[in-house]
Every structure is written in structure tokens, then in C-alpha cells.
Design a protein around this nucleic acid. Structure first.
Lengths: 194, 194
DNA sequence: AAAACTAACTAACGCTTGTTAGTTTTATTG
DNA sequence: CAATAAAACTAACAAGCGTTAGTTAGTTTT
């Protein structure tokens, strides 16, 4: 089978651990559980990772960074407010459907990080939310968005988007494109007709 | 101090445990942690509860039942589709702001229930989602709602609502009434102006 | 062919987990 | 005030936790 770069054992551990963390939550998963899934004894994992939290850190920061980078690019672009919000929705749908396990962990398991990583992560998350909120506030000021409280909009929209990897599943017959256009319609144009 | 019914020790345990489960997640909280918060030794908790999971069960099923009861009342009422959706939003805001810890547990910690409780809970949850979806499907059929995929609408709206207890906090200066009207506007009428 | 590296193993470490048993203190009642 | 019930305590348990140490086999580099 052709593949440019072989998946390292570390990557396999990350992948299997992510699947378990997603299903059971970080504290409920033991090193033994991870080892079993990888097909190795627990102690052998330490040839590839530093600690259990090492796994959590890698996942959380990798995707937090990915979100930040992409959001900043959207925020600094010269597009309209509506376009920016649409792009943010697309971003969350894309990441949330292609990397469901890792995104769930980034969104819900980060609280198990220890200091100083926890504080770093929280700062990134806050910055992310603020950037999003600035876009909404600008939209309201310019009169292109309804005068809804920006904090409420930000959390409501972000909540809807962060939940996608929990319920989305190809087998439901909803394509990723469906998801993008439908959520954009719902959020931007609302549920009621005309 | 006047009070009609005194809070039982069991209630205090439930309350303190709920606060801990909310912050750290069920598996990360030990019986010792709970005991410390209650001001007692861990073994003493067993004079009032059967087991750790006993606490989780009580919280999950009490509020799942509350949700079901209220949703069924809304679904069976003679109101318009838009009114029903508005009532569902109000329901989630009310419960999510007044019982934040318990609602978070009902929404996110239920997976740590053991069988057969887990299956029972999942069935209730699925029934809840189905009832909500039926309302949306009816609205689309009647032409009062846009032709958005009902599954997507159901999960998107429910996600936005289930997340409220995570971020809502009186100190942000957003009142519960603000929250209700703003979320209803956002979901029913959308974000863009005109 | 020797040396170094990789990655697996077994065994053990100190610690914490949820829970039970048995006992003593505190509160309520006749 | 004595009897009873409720609720706290201490001590212990078996099992599991994350992690380290020491070793061994197989592969790669010198």
C-alpha cells in the first residue's frame, strides 16, 4: 500500500487514546485500556510518550492552535461580516467532522490539563471567543446583524458548532455539505419562513 | 431561620457532589472529595447513599424525567409550531440557569451510568430528541419552517440549548429574560437583519 | 563483528480508589 | 434519664492507578 510517510507508533497511540477519551472521558481511561487497544503492555507505551497527560496535551494544543490560526485568518480577511460568520461555521464543520475524536477532546477534556498548560489553554480559548465576539459586535455596529447581545450570540453559535462531532455520523445520510449550508441558513437566516 | 422542609443530609450530598461532578467530571471525583465538601469522612456518606453511582443515577433520572414531562406537555399542546419551539427554548433556559450543575451532569455525565440504567437513560434521551424532531418535521410539512433538514435543526438547536449551563453566569450582566428572548430571536428569525 | 539503538517485556513501586465492618458519638424519643 | 435510632468515626479490604526499573530480543549503524 502506497503511503508517503508511515504512521509512527506515537501517532497510533494518540489515535487510539483519542478514541477512548472521546467515548469515556480522559479520567475514566486507564493506560491499560490504551495499551490494550494498541496491542501492547501499558509500560511499553512509555517508550513513545512521556505520560498520560502528554497525550492530552498534544491533542488539545494541536487543535487549539489549528482553530486559532484559521479563525485569525478569517477575522483579518477583507470579507463581509456575513461571509466571515459563514467561514467560521464552515471551519467548525470541517474540523468537527474530519477529526471528531480530537475535536471533542479539545472542547471537553481540556479541563483535565494540569498547570501551567491549563492556564495557557484557557487563554487561547478565551482569545478565540473574543475574536469571534468582535466580529459579531462589528456586525451589530454596522447594522448588518440584528441587535442581539453579542455574548449570547457568540456562545449560542459556538455551542451549536462545538457539539457537531458528538452527533454527526456519516451513516445518518447527512453530507458535510448539507451540514454546512443548513447550519448557515439556520443561523444567518433563521428557522421561520419569510 | 424559617424553612418549610429542612434539607436532608442526602440532599446536601447530592448538591455538593453535583457541583464537583460539574467541575471535574464524574470519574475524576472521588468519594473523599465529596466527603470533604460535605464535611464528613468518606465512609459516613454510606449512611445516606448506596454508592457513588447512586448519586449519578438520582441526578440524571430526576432531570431527564423533568425534561420529558415538560416537553411532552409542550408537544401535546394546541399551540402553533413556532410557539412550541419558543416554549422548548424557554424550558431549556429555565432549567439550565436554575440548576446548572445538575443539568450539565444530565447532559454530559450520563455516559458513566452502568447497565441497565445506561440503556434506560439512552432510550429517554432518544425519545426526547424524537419528540423535538417531530415538531420540526411538522413545521416543515406545514410550511411554517424553512426546508432545513430536521435532524440538523434538532441537533443544532439542542446543542445550543444544552450548552447554556456551561457558560451562563449571572455576573456577565445577561438576565435570564435577555437570554430567552435573544435565543428565540436568533433561532427563529436568524442573525442577519431584514 | 561490535556497538548502539529501538521497542517490547515482567515485576514492582507507592498511592488512591470505592466500599464494608465494627465501634463510638450524637440526637431523638418515651 | 434511660433507651433507641441516626450518623459519625476508625480501620481495613482488594483492586486498580500511573509510572519506573531492569532486562531482553531484534534491528540498524559503525
Amino acid at each position: 500500500m502506497l503511503q508517503i510517510t508511515k504512521k509512527s507508533k506515537r501517532d497510533i497511540i494518540m489515535e487510539q487514546a483519542a478514541a477512548l477519551f472521546k467515548e469515556q472521558g480522559y479520567p475514566a481511561v486507564s493506560m491499560n485500556d490504551i495499551a490494550d487497544k494498541v496491542g501492547v503492555k501499558a509500560a511499553s507505551l512509555y517508550n513513545h510518550i512521556k505520560s498520560k497527560e502528554d497525550i492530552l496535551q498534544e491533542i488539545c494544543f494541536r487543535f487549539a492552535h489549528e482553530y486559532m490560526t484559521q479563525l485569525n485568518r478569517i477575522a483579518q480577511s477583507e470579507q463581509s461580516i456575513s461571509h466571515k460568520i459563514a467561514a467560521i461555521i464552515d471551519l467548525h464543520v470541517t474540523l468537527g467532522t474530519h477529526n471528531a475524536a480530537a475535536i471533542i477532546i479539545t472542547n471537553y477534556e481540556w479541563k483535565h490539563l494540569s498547570e501551567p498548560y491549563l492556564s495557557d489553554f484557557k487563554a487561547m480559548r478565551k482569545s478565540y471567543e473574543q475574536t469571534f465576539m468582535d466580529i459579531i459586535t462589528e456586525g451589530v455596529a454596522k447594522g448588518v446583524l440584528k441587535g442581539i447581545d453579542p455574548t449570547i450570540v457568540m456562545f449560542t453559535v459556538l455551542s451549536a458548532l462545538r457539539w457537531i462531532p458528538f452527533w454527526y455520523n456519516d451513516k445518518r445520510g447527512v453530507t458535510i455539505e448539507d451540514l454546512k449550508t443548513n447550519i448557515k441558513t439556520l443561523i444567518l437566516k433563521g428557522l421561520e419562513k419569510e
